[in-house]
Amino acid sequence: TGTRRLSDLRVIDLRAELRKRNVDSSGNKSVLMERLKKAIEDEGGNPDEIEITSE
């Protein structure tokens, strides 16, 4: 578990975070980053400090 910047995430991490939020996880990295950023902002979170749970 740790905090990472949105830009540091790999595509696989972006998809996992989107799936956790029940958000569409298809598309390229830039699309996924925008989608995740919006989802985090909608939750009231900070997209520059994403809580990542290692699996």
Rank of each mutant, 00 (worst) to 15 (best):
E43L: 03
G44I: 05
G45H: 04
R35A: 10
R21V: 01
L32F: 00
D13V: 02
D24I: 03
M33R: 11
R15F: 01
N46A: 06
S30N: 13
S54R: 09
T1G: 07
L14R: 00
N28Y: 04
E41V: 09
E55H: 15
L32H: 00
I52Q: 09
V23D: 01
T53L: 14
A16Q: 09
T3R: 07
K29D: 06
I12L: 13
T1V: 05
M33C: 08
V11G: 06
D48V: 10
G2E: 15
E51Q: 05
L18A: 10
R10I: 02
E17C: 06
A16L: 14
E43P: 01
E51K: 07
T53P: 10
N46Q: 08
G44N: 09
S25D: 15
D13W: 01
D8G: 08
E51C: 14
R5P: 03
T3D: 09
E41D: 07
G45F: 05
N46G: 03
E43R: 06
N28G: 15
M33A: 10
P47M: 06
L36F: 07
I52R: 12
T3N: 11
R5Y: 05
M33T: 15
N28K: 13
S54G: 14
E55A: 15
S26N: 12
I52L: 10
D8M: 10
K29S: 09
D13N: 05
K37P: 01
G44V: 04
A16R: 14
K38W: 05
K29C: 06
T53E: 12
S26H: 09
A39S: 06
T53I: 12
R10S: 13
K37M: 09
A39N: 03
L14I: 08
D13C: 03
R4Q: 10
E51F: 12
T53W: 08
V31W: 04
I40F: 04
L32D: 11
E17F: 02
E49I: 10
N22H: 06
N28I: 08
L36W: 02
T3Y: 15
K37L: 11
R21L: 03
I40N: 02
S30G: 13
V11A: 08
D8A: 07
R35G: 04
R35M: 05
L9E: 01
L18S: 02
D42W: 04
G45W: 04
E43Y: 01
I12D: 12
K29M: 04
T53K: 13
E51M: 11
E17Q: 09
I40L: 13
I50K: 09
K29I: 08
E51H: 15
I50N: 10
S26R: 13
T53A: 06
S7H: 03
A39E: 07
L6W: 02
R15K: 05
V11N: 08
K29Q: 14
T3H: 04
N28M: 05
I12G: 15
D42S: 12
D24L: 05
R35L: 06
A39K: 10
S26P: 00
M33S: 12
L6H: 02
I40H: 00
E41N: 11
L6I: 12
D42R: 12
S26A: 07
E43D: 10
G44A: 03
T1D: 00
P47Y: 12
I12S: 12
E17V: 03
R19W: 06
N28H: 13
D42K: 09
D48K: 02
V11S: 11
V23Y: 09
S54W: 05
M33F: 11
A16G: 14
M33K: 09
G27V: 00
E49M: 14
R10D: 14
G44T: 04
L18W: 00
E51W: 07
V11M: 15
L9G: 02
L6E: 03
D24M: 04
A16Y: 12
S25F: 09
K29H: 05
T1R: 08
E34S: 14
L6Q: 02
R4I: 15
E55M: 06
V31Q: 09
L14Q: 01
V23R: 15
E43V: 08
E49S: 15
L9W: 05
T1K: 07
K38G: 08
L36I: 02
I50L: 14
D42C: 09
E43W: 01
D24K: 08
S30V: 15
E49D: 07
G45Q: 11
D42G: 13
E17R: 00
G2F: 09
I40Q: 03
K37C: 08
S7T: 10
A16S: 13
E49G: 11
E49Y: 10
E17M: 13
R5Q: 09
T1P: 02
E34M: 13
D48G: 13
E34F: 02
T1C: 10
M33I: 12
D42N: 13
T53Q: 12
R19M: 10
K29V: 10
N46V: 10
S25Q: 12
G45I: 05
K38D: 09
I52P: 05
M33H: 06
K20A: 15
R21M: 05
K29T: 11
K29F: 09
S7M: 10
D8K: 04
E17Y: 02
L6K: 02
R4M: 15
K37S: 12
S7L: 07
R15H: 03
L6F: 05
L36E: 03
R15A: 08
L6R: 03
V31M: 12
L32K: 02
I52V: 12
L18R: 00
G44Y: 01
G44K: 07
R4S: 11
I12F: 10
I12Q: 15
A16C: 07
G45M: 07
V23M: 15
I52D: 10
G44C: 04
K37W: 06
S30F: 10
D13F: 00
L18I: 00
D42T: 09
P47T: 06
E43A: 10
L18T: 00
I50R: 08
L32Q: 03
S26K: 07
